[in-house]
Design a protein around this nucleic acid. Structure first.
Lengths: 225, 225
DNA sequence: CAATCATTCAATTGTTTTATTGAATAGATA
DNA sequence: TATCTATTCAATAAAACAATTGAATGATTG
């Protein structure tokens, strides 16, 4: 076998390690969760419904490919993305999946039918209307995820505390709720609840990383060659 | 199991199908090759050194995930990327791999040591100098890949025909050669050959898709929200 | 109409991966 | 020091995968 062949095989072998990480549904879910902020092993186990040992094993795999990293904090091992670019890559994967896989499109529209008339608001429209002061953006993720990063201007009320803080919401404005991204249903539940209380509300499908990619693509303005 | 859990599992199952495609080194190489233009099964088999049956099997996998598509042309089945966005996604994967995997960095620098003093020229610098008419950009890929898409201003001389067309190259300008991208060595071989003939030459690491992403990121200039 | 050719299919092999257990580790707490 | 607790490790069994081979397909060519 030629030198070049060996080199290419080794190189693609390496890239395939990242591919391997993405070949398991559970690992993809873990990466999506970690995109929102660092978490302990058993937090991840609880959210995903997997056994702790299983989560740990998947995290090892992700660690070997340098997609996540960890540190000890008291009794817990906290895992997080190794790089912000991993989150951005996950957005790329989601985009590609939604474009190529009819099944993804179907699954998404199916769930939105369950949540009545849940047409999401477009990111562009939202930012415009926020700017004009017409809407309030609501981040319904846990506090720590909000602290890790959120869309500027959003207020934080975690899903479980929504009822408690209902009164503090401005009555005259429309509420737009968002959560972890297109495959998280917390915002849908929030909108459903708000609507049931007679509050005008709609859902933003995008999460923090999708938002970030959007502003990056609209504000980059380097000089042309 | 809750409705939501089932939905999420199905959804991530779907995304994992794309991941599966990326988990095999051979399939990654096939995707990279198809990024350059459509090819028949046995063309791919010859380039990659795999058996035809094996290539066909991998192509089925890629086809099931809607990453490639095929059509018959005479006696041949021609495969190509299903969407240009697949090529762009591959660039994302390469980026992530180069950033996270030290092994990839090492493999790349190792091979460049073999090709003496082969520091690649930066894309930005190249475009500037091309614009000033200081350099000639040379596409050494096969003609059909050039026809599928090339960097504007590049001239096409496939690797094997380089010797034949040597005289037609402008003597006063520096030559910059490029090929399929960072993991293709044709351009390095071309530069080595040109240098051996006393022609000033250097290598562009980027290929068409990397170039495309670069111009997209520098020229996008929509108004800010 | 037979022969040829590129490709796919089917069956087989050996290898890898997954989820599941239960035990081991190593900090923190009492 | 003993006891928790969270996590990892190790061993297992079931499932999925990759590469190989040879046969089957199906269109084109002589």
């Amino acid at each position: 076998m030629s030198m070049e062949r060996i080199w290419k095989d080794q190189l693609y072998q390496e890239f395939a390690r990242i591919g391997k990480c993405l070949s398991s549904p559970k690992r993809l879910e873990l990466l999506d969760l970690l995109s929102q902020g660092p978490k302990s092993v058993d937090q991840l186990a609880k959210i995903t419904g997997m056994s702790v040992a299983n989560v740990s094993q998947h995290l090892q795999t992700l660690h070997e490919s340098r997609l996540v990293r960890s540190h000890k904090q008291g009794n817990f091992v906290i895992y997080g993305l190794a790089e912000l670019s991993v989150a951005d890559f996950m957005v790329s994967l989601h985009r590609l999946g939604e474009k190529q896989l009819v099944e993804v499109q179907k699954l998404k529209s199916d769930i939105l039918l369950n949540h009545v008339s849940m047409e999401p608001i477009a990111l562009e429209e939202l930012l415009e209307r926020m700017h004009r002061g017409e809407v309030v953006l609501l981040d319904v993720r846990p506090k720590d995820e909000y602290a890790t990063g959120h869309i500027p201007g959003a207020i934080s009320i975690p899903m479980e505390e929504l009822e408690k803080h209902l009164a503090s919401l401005p009555a005259d404005k429309e509420i737009v709720a968002y959560c972890r991204g297109p495959y998280c249903l917390m915002s849908a539940q929030a909108v459903e609840y708000l609507k049931s209380k007679g509050i005008k509300a709609s859902r933003l499908e995008e999460g923090v990383h999708e938002w970030k990619r959007f502003v990056d693509s609209t504000t980059s303005n380097k000089e042309i060659i």
